[in-house]
Design a protein around this nucleic acid. Structure first.
Lengths: 328, 328
DNA sequence: GTGAAAGCGCTAACAC
DNA sequence: GTGTTAGCGCTTTCAC
């Protein structure tokens, strides 16, 4: 079914059909009715493919994301698509598994599809990404990592501030030997910024930094066991894990080895990933605004498309007190 | 940048550029090299929009999904996009929030975008969906609900078999008074089929069905509290919840009210949603193949596009024994 | 081996 | 108010 066939069936020209389709220009009432009826009967829907060729924009936004099977990322994605939907944009999805090559490839695919913009949920931003994006001239906003130094828009969480506040909270509860479980600093937000928050908080409280109290996992629960073994030899009274998953791993290790939480060791996480609320004990953690960051990124992109102005947004966080910390 | 400009820069015709772009037809070696160099230098990438207008297919697949912020659905989505990627298809995402109107609307949008096919992650299938899909003539595969009676392809989980097996497992462990927490039967798979599995298992074991042992929640954890209050008056020795989330709600209720799990009451869930493994106690549950169902749906769709044959696939499941059940 | 030209389905001047 | 027509960026006969 094409506009031409509709025109023929209605005994009018294609321009008239186009006019009723887009509600533009004048069409006599009964002609409009007649055309509308035929469109209805045939179930004809105009091809965006053809339309996009004429117009400059596709109303398509590319979303680059590591994976979907994560509550956190899912929330971000829900936020993004919500705003895009509201603004009449469709979402082209690219799942990269954090594979650099695939990320680069998807940017090119998006260019071929002539997306109007890209939202990039990133854990690392490289010079190459940025250069390709600039060469392609695709308006882009990053979520989760600061792209300001590359002169790109971004929506970031206050990883530094949140972790600093959490550390201060632990200090206020009387803890001085606070273990830290972080992740690779290649992930600037979660690895580097959160660690910096922990360290600065201790400095400001004039607690000496003990390098042996600082360990690293990856994002998997099982990855903490080794770290914990070494960590516990230093007898910390509290442990700050940089994600809830890691914190759950810590608690499981502790419980398995005869420690009580929080009576023997206090444990906190970050992320408020849903599990924190129903875990046993309920986990004190940082609630970041994932859904909202997705929405915000959507809005920022809409504005870029409108005005071209780049923006950097820092999202709020909230320390959620529950049952996994004890006052010394 | 267009093919025309590239042609001019290279001093050849657009057809020649097209030939080197698509590696079709003969182009003299040095001409090819020259054109390739210019394409490289300019970073030119051909427009799929224009290409699609000529070709019959867009290599686009629409994915209709209730939301992303669910581990389960995220896994399904990861599976889908994996297979689509491998086959050179891109994913257009439609998040519906289970809103019927939006679902219908997205089908139309997908038609306008001329997607080659649709994968529909559904909790309910209505006559209207099916009729519209047929009218639009878009090859579609449903995930999670049986669309066989509508003559559509689908990939479903064995909800009935799994729940029956789980019930039998409980019976074998010596339980006779088994509470059941289900969901609305509008969701045929989770609501209706799982309940049927529970009932049939009891029947075959010649255990009388006690209607008061059968209650309903929605999918939210908090929704079980009321059900549990009534349920516990009937002093069941085991409770089968139709999802892990519900099971966690059950356990939390039990713990809060002084029961021990599993010593006083055994609890099982379904879904193996990740939390089951790390919860305290670790939850005995059914592992459905979410990721795999997404992959399978992708493959089924690829085959439909190829041969037109509709298929119904039933995925496997596995009973995962952990610590939340005791032998009586 | 390469180029000219038609045409994919639509929109938007422009003419009437 | 409505129709004619050019053209969006590409592919693909068909000539040469």
């Amino acid at each position: 079914m094409t506009i031409k066939e509709i025109a023929k069936l209605a005994g009018v020209s294609t321009s008239t059909v186009s006019r009723v389709l887009n509600d533009s220009g004048y069409v006599k009432h009964d002609v409009r009715k007649r055309v509308e009826k035929i469109i209805d009967d045939t179930g004809y829907l105009p091809s965006d493919t053809a339309k996009d060729l004429k117009k400059k924009n596709t109303k398509l936004i590319g979303i680059i994301i590591p994976k979907l099977s994560s509550k956190t990322i899912g929330l971000v994605a829900d936020g993004i698509t919500k705003v895009l939907d509201e603004n009449g944009y469709s979402s082209l999805l690219a799942k990269t598994g954090l594979d650099f090559e695939r990320e680069m490839e998807f940017i090119k695919i998006f260019k071929q599809k002539r997306v109007d913009g890209i939202i990039f949920v990133a854990t690392q931003i490289s010079e190459e990404h940025v250069n390709l994006l600039k060469k392609m001239k695709i308006p882009t906003v990053f979520i989760g990592q600061d792209a300001g130094r590359y002169n790109f828009s971004c929506v970031v969480h206050n990883d530094y501030g949140a972790t600093k506040e959490m550390t201060n909270y632990l200090v206020k509860k009387g803890h001085k030997k606070i273990g830290f479980i972080g992740v690779d600093e290649i992930d600037v937000a979660v690895g580097y910024e959160r660690k910096r928050g922990y360290i600065d908080a201790l400095c400001e409280s004039e607690i000496e930094i003990d390098e042996e109290l600082i360990t690293m996992g990856n994002f998997e629960i099982s990855s903490v066991d080794l770290s914990m073994k070494n960590l516990m030899e230093k007898t910390p009274t509290a442990i700050l894990a940089v994600t809830d998953n890691l914190a759950i791993g810590v608690i499981n290790y502790l419980l398995k080895n005869g420690y009580r939480v929080p009576e023997d060791v206090s444990v906190v996480g970050e992320g408020d990933s849903g599990i924190a609320e129903i875990y046993n004990p309920r986990l004190t953690t940082i609630r970041y605004q994932y859904l909202e960051s997705g929405e915000e990124a959507g809005r920022v992109l809409m504005r870029i498309l409108d005005t071209g102005k780049i923006e950097k947004k820092i999202m709020n966080y909230k320390l959620v007190e529950r049952e996994s910390v004890i006052k010394l």
